[in-house]
Design a protein around this nucleic acid. Sequence first.
DNA 1: GACTGATAGGTAAGAGCTGACATGTCAAGC
DNA 2: GCTTGACATGTCAGCTCTTACCTATCAGTC
Lengths: 170, 170
Amino acid sequence: MLAGMSLRIALLGLLSGVGPASGYDLAKKFEHSLNHVWQAGHTQIYPELVKMAADGLVTVEHEGARGRKIYAITPEGRALLTDWLIGHDPSATVRSETALQAFLLPLLNTEQAIAVVERIKAHFVARLAVLDCVPEGSRLGNYALTLGLRQVRSGVAWADETLAALRREG
Amino acid sequence: MLAGMSLRIALLGLLSGVGPASGYDLAKKFEHSLNHVWQAGHTQIYPELVKMAADGLVTVEHEGARGRKIYAITPEGRALLTDWLIGHDPSATVRSETALQAFLLPLLNTEQAIAVVERIKAHFVARLAVLDCVPEGSRLGNYALTLGLRQVRSGVAWADETLAALRREG
DNA sequence: GACTGATAGGTAAGAGCTGACATGTCAAGC
DNA sequence: GCTTGACATGTCAGCTCTTACCTATCAGTC
């Protein structure tokens, strides 16, 4: 099980959850639900689907209007998906620009630090607003939604706590 | 301000916070503190320091034993660092394998889902243990530590909630 | 003297990802 | 008939990052 097959898994998961779809559909789905969990644009998705078809994980079910190609997950794809979900130990790699700014906060004076934390808080709040608008009951993604909400709320709480601390010492 | 200069910022931040250091030192610092916020191995750090020196952001202060090269941040480097901290709007790009597994949980049966969430929880707990052992008072990183602790704890809370829900329905 | 492990610094192939560009279809409104 | 905008699919350069590999020094131990 190679690392860095998360894009494949995400695509297989969508195909498994919502049924056959075109690359375009999958890109839209990424934008409107999965993007809180994994990012990918159409420039990544289209070539990946071609490779996945070559590997037998998906098939082109039929071609529709405007060159629209509908992909469906194969039994091999379903097997890979389930194996990954059950067996893959998620890597702990984190790359958060927000956390990096938090890390480096002590390099700024109090006034500057307050401004930075205010902006970080605004970011968390905006994200919270987006997550609150995600429709529930779409089967896939509900658990990720509650996880995201919890983590974003804890981000807001951190920002408030940090702002209070900075203002006390400032 | 280009995107994807976070590695530079992280290195400049360390040099600014702890003073001149070698690539090796910086790699160690990454491993023991920054890696909860941003990942980078020595294979990324060494070439990046060379490029940063070429761009005038750092200088080789002197060379020590065993070819050890000590880098120091320059005024230009300090200016770039401060500008980024104050002016950079952190990108919201997320790529979390854990969250992806959470997203796809509904594709599994209850028994399998419980096993996956148990593993995710174990991951969060392990991370919590690591963060609890990070020495406080090291100036840099304290704010990121409290942020990380909050988010990991909310991860554990989510896992407990989700396990309870799965066991009710199972 | 030989071996081990930490120190110290790299290179290079290839995978992953971003942003810019390119092409063409189809429906709706003017 | 023409334009606009959504639909639909792709390529490519360039950057980031990971993995595997390589070299060499020095201290301590068997």
